[in-house]
Computed example of a mutant assay.
Amino acid sequence: MEALRGWLVPFLLPERCFDELFLRLHLLHVPCLKILLSKVLGYAIVAGSVMVKLPQVLKVAGARSGAGLSLPAVLLELLALGGSGAYRWARAFPFSAWGEALFLLLQTLTIAFLIQHFGGRTGRGLLLVAGYAALLGALLSPRTPLALTTLLQAANLPIIILSRLLQALANYRQGHTGQLSGVSTALLLGGALARIFTSLQETGDALLALTFAASAACNGLLLAQLLYYRGPRPPPQGD
Rank of each mutant, 00 (worst) to 15 (best):
L152S: 03
L152M: 09
Q153L: 13
Q153N: 14
Q153K: 11
Q153C: 09
A154D: 07
A154E: 07
A155Y: 09
A155C: 12
A155Q: 10
A155S: 12
N156G: 14
L157Y: 06
L157D: 05
L157H: 07
P158M: 08
P158T: 12
P158W: 06
P158Q: 07
I160V: 15
I160Q: 14
I161E: 11
I161G: 09
L162P: 00
L162E: 05
S163D: 07
R164Y: 11
R164Q: 12
L165C: 09
L165M: 13
L165E: 13
L166T: 07
Q167V: 10
Q167M: 10
A168C: 14
L169T: 11
A170T: 10
A170S: 13
A170Y: 06
N171I: 09
N171S: 12
Y172R: 15
R173A: 10
R173D: 01
R173N: 11
Q174F: 07
Q174C: 05
G175V: 08
G175M: 06
G175P: 08
T177Y: 10
T177A: 12
T177F: 08
Q179G: 03
Q179S: 10
L180T: 05
L180M: 13
S181M: 09
S181G: 10
S181F: 05
S181D: 14
G182E: 12
G182Q: 12
V183D: 08
S184P: 01
T185C: 02
T185A: 03
A186K: 07
A186P: 06
A186C: 11
A186H: 05
A186F: 15
L187Y: 02
L187C: 08
L187K: 02
L188G: 07
L188A: 13
L188K: 13
L188R: 12
L188V: 01
L189G: 04
G190Y: 04
G190L: 13
G191V: 01
G191D: 05
G191R: 04
G191N: 10
G191T: 04
G191S: 14
A192T: 11
A192N: 11
L193Q: 01
L193Y: 00
L193F: 08
L193W: 05
A194P: 00
A194F: 11
A194H: 02
R195D: 05
R195L: 11
I196V: 15
F197E: 06
F197T: 04
F197M: 05
T198S: 06
T198G: 03
T198Q: 03
L200K: 00
Q201K: 09
Q201G: 00
Q201P: 08
Q201A: 15
E202K: 03
E202C: 03
E202H: 09
E202M: 12
T203S: 02
T203N: 03
T203G: 00
G204P: 02
G204N: 05
G204K: 04
D205M: 02
A206G: 00
A206Y: 05
A206T: 12
A206Q: 08
A206K: 04
